[in-house]
Design a protein around this nucleic acid. Structure first.
Ligand SMILES: NC(=O)c1ccc[n+]([C@@H]2O[C@H](COP(=O)([O-])OP(=O)(O)OC[C@H]3O[C@@H](n4cnc5c(N)ncnc54)[C@H](O)[C@@H]3O)[C@@H](O)[C@H]2O)c1
Ligand SMILES: NC(=O)c1ccc[n+]([C@@H]2O[C@H](COP(=O)([O-])OP(=O)(O)OC[C@H]3O[C@@H](n4cnc5c(N)ncnc54)[C@H](O)[C@@H]3O)[C@@H](O)[C@H]2O)c1
Lengths: 211, 211
DNA sequence: CTACATTTGTGAAGCTTTTCACAAGCTTTC
DNA sequence: GAAAGCTTGTGAAAAGCTTCACAAATGTAG
C-alpha cells in the first residue's frame, strides 16, 4: 500500500463511485471493469490498475460486487464519514454552493457561513446564521471545521486561507482566481472557470502557429 | 508546430496569461521564465518548454516582453476574439455564472439564456431575455452561439448537449454530474464540485489500506 | 572589443502514467 | 470432476510529461 496515488487516479475513483451508486439504484449486483470503464470514459485495464493500488476487490470470472466496491471506494475516498465544511463569502457563487444538495449527499456538511458584509451577517440561511468574518477563528475552532470553501474576491482569498489554516481548517476549495500559498500538508483544490473556458477556446482554435 | 498539446500545458498557459496581465497592470516590461514560474507554481524549465511548443518568444539574457508574450498567449489560447456563449439553466449556479464578470473580461460573452421553467422564461436579465428551451435551435443558429454552458439537472444534460451540438454549438462547459457523449470534435469540459471535494477528502484520509 | 553575467531554447535523461498481454482464479456446464 | 468461458490482477512495454543541463544568444561593463 501507500505508493503515491496520482490526481488522475483519484478523479477516476470518484467517477467509479458515481457509476456504482447509479448501479446500486438499479439493483445491479455485480459489474465488470469493462462496464465501469465505459461509464467512466476510460479503459478496463485502467480501472483494474486504479483499484489494484488499494487491494484486490474483484472476483475473477465474475467482476466486482457493486455494493462492496462502492463501500471500499467510499472508504478510500474518505466519504464514509461526515466532513464539516465552512463557506466564506455569501455572494453569488457562495449562495449557489450553499444550496447545492449533492454536497450533503456525499457527507460534506455546510455548517457555517461567513461574510464581511454587515448587510449579510446575521441573516439566517436554513439551519445556519451568517457570521462575521472576524469570527472565523472562533467558528472554525468551536464547530470543528475540516474543510473551507473560499468564495470571496481574489484579493481577500490569501489572507482568509492563512487564517483558516491557522485556526484548524485542513483543506481548502478555492474559487478565487488566486494561487494560494499554504503549508504543504494542506490540500488545496482550485476551481477556475475562466481557465475551463479557455481550455475550450484553445481546443477550438486552429491557428496555433508561431507567427 | 502542432504536436498534441497536453491539458496540463494548456492550464499552465492560462496561468501565465493571468500572471502577465497582472504584470501589465504594474507596467512591468519584461519577465523571465523564473519569475513566471514562481507565480504559476511551476518551474522555469517547464515555462520555457510550454512556450517552446508554439515558437520562441523570448530574448536570451533578457527574458520575455510582457506585452508581447501576453499577446501571443491570447492568440494561442484563442482569447484574442469574442466567443458567443449561451447558458442553459437559469437556476442557482446558472444565475451566479451569468453575473460573473471575469467571463466577459476574457471575451466570453453570455448572449443567451435558456430555461424550461415558464416562470423564468421571458424574464429579463440585463441585456438578455430568458428563452424557452424549445427555442434552443433557433437561438443557437440566429445568435451564432459558439459555446454552451450547461447548468441543468443531470438527467436533462445529455439531451440538451445533443441538441446544442446539432444546432451548431462547438464546445460545452458542463456543470451536471453526467458524462456527456458527443462527437469527438466537440470539446467538453466538466466541472464537478463533488469530485473536487472528494479529492480533498482523499488527501486527508490516511487510512487507504485494503482492509 | 573582450570578458562577464544572464537567460533562453532544447535535446536527452529521468520519472510517471497508461496500455498491453497473459497467467491465475472463479463459475457454470456437461 | 474436467472442460469451457469469463474476468481479474499485474509485470512489462510503451507512451507521455517533467526535469536536467548546457550551448547559443543577448546585453553590460570595463
Ligand atoms: N459568480 C461566479 O459564477 C463565480 C464563478 C467562479 C468563481 N467565482 C469567484 O468566486 C469569488 C466570489 O465571486 P462572487 O461572484 O460570488 O462575488 P460576490 O461579490 O457576489 O460575493 C463575494 C462575497 O464575499 C464577501 N467578501 C468580500 N470580502 C470578504 C472578506 N474579506 N471576508 C469575508 N467575506 C468577504 C462579500 O461580502 C460577498 O458577499 C470571486 O473570487 C470570483 O472570482 C465566481
Ligand atoms: N448549485 C450549485 O452550486 C451547483 C454546483 C455545481 C454543479 N451544479 C449542477 O448544476 C446543475 C444545476 O444546478 P442548480 O443548483 O443550479 O439547480 P437549479 O434547480 O437551481 O437550476 C436548474 C435550472 O435548470 C432548469 N431546467 C431543468 N430542466 C431543464 C431543461 N430540460 N431544459 C432547460 N432548463 C431546465 C430549471 O428550470 C432550473 O432553472 C445541476 O446539474 C447541479 O448538479 C450545481
Amino acid at each position: 500500500m501507500s505508493r503515491r496515488i496520482s490526481d488522475s487516479t483519484v478523479r477516476r475513483l470518484s467517477h467509479y463511485l458515481r457509476a456504482l451508486e447509479e448501479l446500486e439504484g438499479r439493483h445491479a449486483t455485480t459489474v465488470s471493469s469493462d462496464q465501469l470503464a465505459a461509464r467512466g470514459g476510460t479503459t478496463a485495464a485502467q480501472v483494474r490498475k486504479d483499484l489494484s493500488h488499494f487491494g484486490s476487490f474483484g472476483k475473477r470470472g465474475l467482476g466486482y460486487s457493486v455494493a462492496e466496491l462502492a463501500g471500499r471506494l467510499r472508504r478510500i475516498l474518505g466519504v464514509d464519514r461526515h466532513w464539516k465544511v465552512a463557506l466564506v463569502g455569501a455572494g453569488r457563487i457562495g449562495s449557489a454552493l450553499f444550496e447545492y444538495p449533492d454536497f450533503a449527499a456525499r457527507g460534506f456538511r455546510l455548517v457555517a457561513v461567513l461574510d464581511r458584509d454587515p448587510a449579510k451577517v446575521g441573516r439566517v440561511w436554513g439551519p445556519v446564521t451568517i457570521s462575521d468574518i472576524s469570527e472565523l477563528e472562533r467558528v472554525v475552532g468551536e464547530r470543528d471545521i475540516d474543510l473551507m470553501i473560499l468564495a470571496v474576491p481574489g484579493d481577500a482569498a490569501q489572507a482568509i486561507a492563512e487564517r483558516a489554516v491557522a485556526a484548524g481548517a485542513r483543506g481548502l476549495l478555492n474559487f478565487a482566481p488566486t494561487q494560494l500559498r499554504v503549508a504543504d500538508d494542506v490540500p488545496v483544490t482550485n476551481v477556475n472557470l475562466v481557465m475551463e473556458m479557455e481550455a475550450l477556446s484553445f481546443a477550438l482554435t486552429k491557428d496555433q502557429t508561431a507567427s
